[in-house]
């Protein structure tokens, strides 16, 4: 086969299947889950570094349970447990696109609670890069725990946590493919369909998705590297 034969196969695949739409779904899942897991992870990190033992305990328990549970189990539980069994609707049941919306949001829920544990630990590693004297100085001028965390510790911890947060974002991007397990029409779901219908061009199909993910993830790594250089706190 010549190179042009391969290019013809790609052209055919892109014409027959909505590859860009499937990847757009990946981007949406990633973006929404990243925001939600960042907020949740920040709250968890605050709990873990707080001076209140019961909050520390809850934060540690959350991280250790969620981080050590397979993502597939969490996502399936969101669908089969929270929705099918317990009746948790995250979209209006009368909506025309109820299943699509509900499954998307359940997937976001599962992805967010799972990755929040990793965000929490990334932030905590960032907190460890902030010298203890910074917190002491903040307390010494009369700031309480929350203002100290918000104004002094987290702004510096965030800069120290950019690299591990970037890794979490990359993992999240690829982990969104698990959402196909509950019927979200993202890239890996489309890939299964394509393999089923066009087993004759299987190499082209694999390459499509491999390259697609590289294109999505590569900029994240580059941005993270440049940010962590540019935002480093001078001491």
């Amino acid at each position: 086969m010549t190179l042009s034969d391969y290019l013809d196969q790609f052209a055919e695949l892109f014409a027959t299947f909505d590859v860009l739409g499937a990847f757009w779904q990946i981007v949406r899942l990633t973006a929404v889950s990243a925001v939600v897991s960042f907020v949740l992870g920040t709250v968890l990190a605050l709990m873990r570094i707080s001076p209140i033992p019961s909050l520390q305990w809850v934060g540690a328990a959350y991280v250790n349970v969620l981080r050590n549970t397979p993502l597939t189990v969490i996502i399936l539980f969101c669908n089969l447990g929270l929705w099918a069994q317990l009746g948790l609707n995250l979209a209006s049941p009368t909506s025309q696109t109820f299943f699509e919306q509900n499954n998307f949001r359940l997937a976001v829920l599962g992805l967010s609670v799972y990755h929040a544990a990793f965000v929490c630990e990334a932030l905590r590693s960032g907190v460890n890069t902030v010298p203890v004297g910074q917190a002491e100085a903040a307390r010494a001028i009369g700031l309480g725990f929350l203002p100290t965390a918000r104004l002094i510790i987290f702004p510096q911890a965030l800069r120290g946590a950019i690299a591990p947060l970037g890794n979490t974002l990359i993992a999240l991007t690829k982990n969104t493919t698990v959402a196909s397990a509950i019927g979200v029409a993202e890239a890996s779901a489309l890939m299964k369909t394509m393999i089923e219908f066009r087993p004759d061009v299987i190499i082209a199909i694999f390459l499509t998705f491999a390259i697609g993910f590289v294109i999505l993830v590569l900029p994240v790594g580059l941005v993270v590297t440049s940010l962590s250089r540019r935002l480093a706190v001078a001491r």
Partner: peptide
């Protein structure tokens, strides 16, 4: 003890450290 009262008291007690501890950012 810990809490708002303590924060208020610390505001009345200035502290200068060996390692300066200026807010680096």
């Amino acid at each position: 003890a810990e809490g708002k009262e303590l924060a208020r008291l610390r505001a009345d007690v200035g502290m200068v450290f060996q390692s300066f501890n200026l807010f680096a950012h």
